[in-house]
Design a binder for these strands. Structure first.
Length: 612
RNA sequence: GCGCCCGUAGCUCAGCAGGAUAGAGCACCAGAUUCCUAAUCUGGGGGCCAUGGGUUCGAAUCCCGUCGGGCGCACCA
């Protein structure tokens, strides 16, 4: 469908004033990490083979990987290049592997190249290469692991976006933490990130909120309101909102018709709820750059513009919805509504953008909202709860359409991903705990954070992949908090810091002077730590911050293991009083491992504590 | 009925854009502390990666079917 002739509305280009943040640039010294260097070496070796005519030019190298083998006995790095390229090159993997091995053997720091298994190339590196990496960590410090892979492109991450009808509860928690950690991760991986919260302040739920507040307002004026009627929010958190309105307006709206106060109360109530939500998020150290209001979006006429544009492209038409299948709806009757042709982009059904009363559906406004967002950034990521999974297709369809994509998968459109975080099953003493905002028996996020702490909540939410359901048992998390992995990781950092303090008191300082004294056990720690930059890039690309948490757990485990060698063998301790040079080198190692832990925890928003 | 997600050790979960012998924690068993923080560590048992096909040099990973669990399925948000 040709839709390039009609330009986008101006507003969609300029739109909201998105704050442009400076892309965080890594300290661009000469310092290169090993992980960044070796894929380049492999590529250069392949170039050399091309130049020599061993392999044809232009082979697709996308599948070539350079990574540490799972089994350390296989060396320090392995590449599958020969296996992947053998077929397109029309060569026996073995022949190609041998040729590549000869090239890679010339790379400085490579001591051995072995062809193994079906055609893996296993590289062994000199200790000096790893010691250089250690120096690189020291040089880069807080920037170690930072990547430029994102190329400075701007990514908008929308997360939380809870309805402003009450405080944050535990159901919101996972998306909040995952979204926030992802935003940090993307920043670290070289993107400019906008953290955005979409405020659904225009729908029916906020009218309910306004009415609920009106009740509290009358209550504050001395009226006996009794039980909060069915259909209104019963939570106590609305009491102070009602009181504030009573103080400000006295009895003016007590008996007035709804039309006189609804809009006012809605505005006030939403503002109060947003303040509450911001405070709740602050407890988790979550701070959005931008709160976008659905009501303002509508007031500014954005949905109309989107509709007009879509109609001009025959992507919105007036039609009838099909009756729902597979379940009977009592009072279903066909109506004609403006429908977006989401089926053209892979959805099962065309979707209404306005209700029969002419007002916007959630989707109609959301579509315009995404139109806005897409206009000013390079890529969009939404973090949604799995209960909204059913609406993913339509919004993806909308973004594809509005950003000029074509085909069932929106090819050519603005990159847009919806990451679903699965439900958190709240448990109490092994029993499921049902929450309902309407019933008012929900567990607030604030309560839980106060109980177990920000770090526990954040880390716990990041210790499984987002697309798996999880249980969150209060009793377990509170009681067994010492078994919580977050302490294990924090402890590693605290131990390191503590050791450095103690060493300083005894006159020792980290020093790169005697690094060659470090042995295999120490180098194993370096090798594990050196994977951090690689991990950051992979986690960012997959939009999976939980990988950082698992990596840190592994790194902490390796550190604790090494530490305990010193229990039986005093000569393995960090501080070896009679050998200042060795002590300096080990402290240097410890310091760098601590730095990596700290950098990783920073991405997760967890404190790297000095002591425990 | 349809769509999306999940199914890996007794339990809770990892498994790095398919890669070499599938890992960790908890629980269970046996050990380590006059010593840099034992909130730690060492060792042991325990798996048909739900299941049946397919793709290929190679599958827990990708594709299809089946079974089991979760979420959603008119104008709600």
């Amino acid at each position: 469908m040709p839709c390039k002739a009609v330009p986008l509305p101006e507003q969609a280009r300029g739109g909201f004033p998105y704050p442009r943040k400076q892309a965080n640039r890594a300290a661009m010294t000469e310092t290169t990490t090993l992980h960044a260097a070796f894929p380049g070496h492999v590529a250069a070796a392949l170039d050399a083979l091309e130049a020599a005519g061993t392999i044809p030019a232009g082979l697709p190298r996308g599948a070539v990987a350079v990574e540490p083998p799972r089994d350390p006995a296989h060396g320090d790095l392995a590449t599958n290049a020969a296996m992947v390229l053998a077929k397109p090159a029309g060569l026996n993997p073995r022949v190609l592997a041998d040729a590549l091995a000869a090239e890679l053997g010339k790379v400085p720091g490579v001591t051995a190249v072995e062809v193994a298994g079906p055609g893996f190339l296993n590289l062994r590196l000199t200790d000096a290469v790893w010691l250089d990496e250690l120096r690189a960590i020291a040089a880069l410090a807080g920037a170690y692991g930072r990547s430029t892979k994102g190329g400075g492109t701007t990514v908008n991450v929308e997360y939380v976006s809870a309805n402003p009808t009450g405080p944050m509860h535990m159901g919101h928690c996972r998306g909040a933490v995952v979204g926030d950690a992802l935003a940090s991760l993307l920043e670290f991986a070289g993107h400019t990130v906008i953290r955005e919260y979409y405020v659904n302040d225009a729908g029916g739920q906020v009218d309910v909120l306004a009415r609920s507040v009106h009740l509290r307002y009358r209550e504050a004026l001395g009226e006996a309101v009794g039980e909060v009627p069915e259909g209104l929010y019963p939570g106590d958190y609305l009491v102070p909102v009602g009181q504030a309105l009573a103080e400000e307006f006295g009895g003016t709206y007590a008996a007035a018709p709804e039309s006189e106060w609804l809009a006012l109360f809605r505005t006030r109530a939403v503002a109060a709820m947003l303040e509450m939500i911001k405070a709740d998020l602050a407890r988790l150290d979550i701070h959005h750059d931008l709160f976008s209001s659905e009501a303002e979006l509508q007031a500014a006429g954005k949905p109309q513009e989107a509709e007009a544009w879509l109609r001009a492209h025959d992507l919105v038409y007036d039609g009838q919805l099909e009756a729902p299948k597979g379940k009977t709806v009592e009072d279903w009757e066909p109506v004609e509504l403006p429908l977006f042709r989401s089926t053209r982009f892979g959805d099962d059904q065309d979707r209404p953008i306005r209700k029969s009363d002419g007002s916007w559906t959630y989707f109609g406004a959301d579509l315009a909202y995404h139109f806005q967002k897409a206009a000013s950034v390079d890529a969009l990521v939404d973090i949604w709860g799995a209960d909204h999974a059913g609406t993913v297709k339509r919004i993806k369809a909308a973004v594809a359409a509005l950003t000029q994509g074509h085909g069932p998968k929106g090819e050519g459109s603005k990159p847009f991903e919806v990451k679903l975080v699965q439900m958190v099953q709240l448990m109490k003493g092994g029993q499921p705990f049902k929450m309902s905002k309407r019933a008012g028996n929900f567990v607030t996020l604030a309560d839980v954070v106060d109980m177990v702490g920000k770090d526990v909540v954040r880390f716990t939410m990041l210790t499984r992949k987002p697309d798996a359901q999880m249980d969150f048992d209060f009793d377990k998390v509170v009681e067994a908090s010492k078994d919580n992995p977050v302490f294990y990781v924090q402890y590693a950092h605290a131990r390191i810091r503590s050791t450095l303090r103690k060493a300083a008191a005894e006159g020792f300082a980290p020093s790169a002077e005697g690094l060659e004294l470090l042995g295999d056990e120490e180098l194993a720690l370096v090798k594990l730590g050196a994977q951090f930059p690689r991990l950051v890039e992979a986690a960012a690309a997959a939009r999976e911050p939980h990988r950082v948490a698992f990596f840190l757990y592994d790194l902490a485990g390796a550190f604790h293991s090494y530490w305990n060698l010193g229990n039986d063998k005093p000569e393995k301790r960090f501080i070896v009083a009679q050998d200042a040079k060795l002590t300096g080198a080990r402290l240097y190692l410890a310091s760098q491992i601590g730095q990596i832990v700290k950098n990783g925890l920073a991405l997760l928003g967890v404190e790297a504590v000095e002591e425990m």
